[in-house]
């Protein structure tokens, strides 16, 4: 993928990254913490490449290393996320209570096909073409007593049935939330 050599970052973005670098300088885990902050702050919750190039330059870290870190951890998104996120837990307790079917159900409901997804059938992250929904999985939320668990826009839903999840997603689709 070609990236133009002289990428102009907006001033406020440059200042934001600069402030993060000075705030966390010298601390352990600084790269992870800064990447998490950049992602959280971005309206589409992802890490644009130009931000990463700038960060690498500011911190004196080889861009290859930054890229290696960003692609290693599941949390980081290199693509813009949908307005709504549906996250299905694929932990053991949830799996034994049918979370795979929840995942299949929501994928079918949102019309997510293989090309729009990354990952294998059981673990994936995919965004609908209209940018409204991202469906992803998490290895385990740590809510095992509430199995099966789904998180819709940062709200944890426990003991979720296929119908309940379908209804929840429909509400969001129709914008009734």
């Amino acid at each position: 993928m070609m990236v133009a050599d002289s990428v102009e970052l907006k001033r406020e973005d440059r200042e934001f990254i600069d402030s993060l670098v000075s705030k966390h300088r010298g601390r352990p885990g600084v790269l992870l913490t800064i990447l998490e902050s950049i992602q959280e702050n971005h309206p589409q919750r992802y890490l644009p490449e130009d931000f990463l190039e700038y960060l690498a330059a500011r911190m004196g870290i080889p861009t290859a290393q930054v890229y290696s870190v960003v692609t290693f951890y599941s949390l980081f998104n290199l693509k813009p996320q949908g307005r709504h996120t549906v996250c299905i837990c694929r932990g053991t307790a949830c799996h034994t209570r049918g979370s795979l079917r929840l995942l299949e159900g929501v994928r079918l409901q949102l019309g997510l096909r293989q090309e729009e997804e990354e990952g294998s059938a059981d673990k994936m992250t995919g965004t609908t073409a209209d940018g409204n929904f991202t469906v992803r999985t998490v290895a385990c939320f740590g809510q095992c007593a509430l199995a099966p668990v789904a998180e819709v826009d940062h709200q944890i839903l426990g003991h979720v049935s296929e119908r309940a999840l379908e209804r929840e997603v429909e509400h969001l689709r129709k914008g009734r939330r």
Binding site: M1, E49, A64, Y67, S68, T71
Partner: peptide, 27 residues
């Protein structure tokens, strides 16, 4: 430090800088 490994597990891939083509490498 042009090269590193991107991704993880079976999807690991050699990457040139920020996933550039080698010809477009800066370093």
């Amino acid at each position: 430090h042009v090269w590193d490994i991107a991704g993880r597990g079976i999807h690991s891939m050699l990457t040139c800088e920020m996933n550039r083509t080698w010809g477009a490498s800066r370093n």
